[in-house]
Write a protein that binds this DNA or RNA. Structure first.
Length: 492
DNA sequence: TCGGCTAGCACTTTTGAATTGG
DNA sequence: ACCAATTCAAAAGTGCTAGCCG
């Protein structure tokens, strides 16, 4: 049971902001408390690379620091997510903003009923590539474009007591994705033809002021990764969306728009025939998809409808629509393979060495990329656990291993690649939020959504690198990901 | 020429104000 | 006067498609 997430901090942000001459900025920050969507601060997340981490507590752990291990965040409708993920989830991004479908919906347990929590979501690049759709599968089309302004979506109920979060599922229905880098509505900005996955952050904090020095836990689910697109590429995804999204009911075959659909289908079939040399049936194209061992965690669950999941006898490797996934799979072997389906049963934050106290990072599960995701998504989905530790220097072997496993684009700012997850413990990421409001980053960044006010996403890495050598961490599979701050820049 | 993007379309669900009845 | 249920129009969300653009 969680007793306290609060940690002493050396910087009292509250007193700073109250004494700050930037009264307007302070006001804006106060306004932020009522803002359903915010970006604003950048957070320094540092990961302690622990490739050999087995889940056992280090000998000199701090006994009181990580008692929040009972907290569970469960992805709702995992079967739906998985049915999309098996094909290769695509999310439309538009200039005015588009909702996700399936939308992020989670349930929480293990919270202190009377303690207040803040729940956030952000999107992090899955890898460092840009993709293109070519003949029924995604192919790498080059290096990823520079990151758009990173934004974090704050659940409108935040902050709310644990009892509130636990009494019902928490939906991020109104979260919107956009490709408009000048967006002023606070939507999450993504690049088309790039892969992302959502991260859920849970912070015990009475208000957003407290976030600064609160421990937060980050949860990811591999089946929620998606390709941001401006138009659907995979017609199977289109079909799935139409079948499951009530707003698209008008496009269902049995709907009133049957005639229109029939005409459209014929036309699009013609069009597709021009693109693809061969016509592939649904089953055929399914098997044409890239094979991947990255989905070993899903084994026993059919690639098609969730109802087939009972067919546990089939233990084949999964087909992945992601070409790069296949490539990754060839050189990565998830340490979580063979995890018990109920990852939550083992969710326990493991205290780090006492010397790591200020900011610690462990990873229980995986790297966020599906390419390395293997654990079960049974029911509750899966998640990773990390405890940032800016004071920790990851061992070289970890780095080497990571680089060996993922020879893709590397960070050149001295940040470290995150290692593959340790073998036994998928879990939550637990961070200590690194204050974004140091002297080097005035609060003014909280205001003004104009694109010109968005500094390059990397700048924080550089800034904080001067404070601690290992302030940044790297995604195990990719470059760039680690440089994605939890809180970024203003969205209001 | 091609691939990605956008605006407008038809259709649906959701939302909230207005109305009605107890 | 109050409250709950119902109705209905507007708003919002959805995929489709033609056309634009680099």
């Amino acid at each position: 049971m969680v007793t306290s997430w609060r940690r002493p901090v050396t910087i009292c942000f509250l007193s700073w902001i109250l004494s700050s001459p930037r009264t307007r900025a302070a006001e804006q920050f106060l306004d932020l408390l009522a803002c359903p969507v915010f970006g604003g601060c950048s957070m320094q997340t540092v990961r302690d690379l622990k490739p050999g981490f087995s889940g056992a507590a280090p000998p000199s752990m701090a006994p009181d620091a990580y008692l929040q291990g009972n907290i569970r965040l469960t992805l709702e409708e995992p079967e739906l997510w998985k049915s999309f993920h098996d094909i290769g989830t695509e999310m439309i991004i538009t200039k005015p903003g588009r909702r996700m479908f399936p939308h992020c919906k989670v349930s929480l347990s293990g919270l202190i009923p009377c303690a207040k929590y803040i729940l956030l979501v952000d999107m992090v690049p899955e890898d460092g590539y840009r993709y293109k759709w070519n003949k029924d599968k995604w192919e790498v089309a080059g290096k990823a474009e520079p990151q758009p302004p990173c934004r974090t979506y704050l659940h409108p109920d935040s902050p709310a007591p644990g009892s509130h979060w636990m009494k019902q599922t928490v939906s991020f229905l109104k979260l919107k994705l956009t490709n408009n880098t000048l967006d002023q509505h606070g939507h999450i900005i993504l690049h088309s033809m790039h892969r992302y996955h959502p991260r859920f952050h849970l912070v015990q904090a009475d208000d957003l002021f407290s976030v600064r020095w609160s421990v937060f836990q980050t949860f990811t689910f591999p089946e929620t990764s998606f390709m941001a697109v401006t138009a659907y590429q995979n017609n199977k995804i289109t079909k799935l969306k139409i079948d499951h999204n009530p707003f698209a009911k008008g496009f269902r075959d049995e709907g009133t728009n049957k005639k229109r659909r029939a005409i459209k289908s014929a036309a699009s079939a013609d069009k597709r025939a021009k693109v693809a040399d061969t016509s592939i049936s649904e089953e055929d194209s399914s098997t044409d998809l890239c094979r991947s061992s990255a989905y070993a965690g899903y084994e026993g669950d059919g690639a098609q409808a969730p109802k087939q999941s009972e067919d546990a006898a089939v233990k084949e490797e999964r087909y992945s629509p992601w070409t790069s996934e296949r490539e990754h799979a060839a050189r990565t072997d998830s340490p979580t393979r063979g995890d018990p389906p109920d990852v939550y049963g083992t969710e326990q934050l493991v205290p780090a060495l006492a010397s790591y106290q200020p900011y610690r990072y462990h990873e229980y599960g995986k790297s966020p990329s599906p390419s390395s995701s293997t654990s079960s998504t049974t029911g509750s989905g899966r998640f990773e656990s990390r405890v940032p530790d800016v004071a920790t220097v990851p061992d070289h072997d970890s780095l080497k291993l990571s680089q060996h496993l993922h020879p893709g684009p590397q960070d050149h700012n001295g940040v470290l690649n995150m290692t593959m997850a340790p073998p036994t413990k998928p879990g939550v990421i637990s961070h200590h939020i690194y204050g974004p409001y140091g002297p080097e980053q005035p609060l003014g960044q909280w205001s003004g959504p104009g694109a010109a006010q968005y500094p390059p996403p990397h700048h924080l890495t550089s800034d904080y690198a001067t404070q601690a050598v290992h302030h940044s961490y790297h995604h195990g599979n990719v470059a760039e990901w680690s440089q994605y701050p939890l809180f970024s820049y203003s969205c209001w």
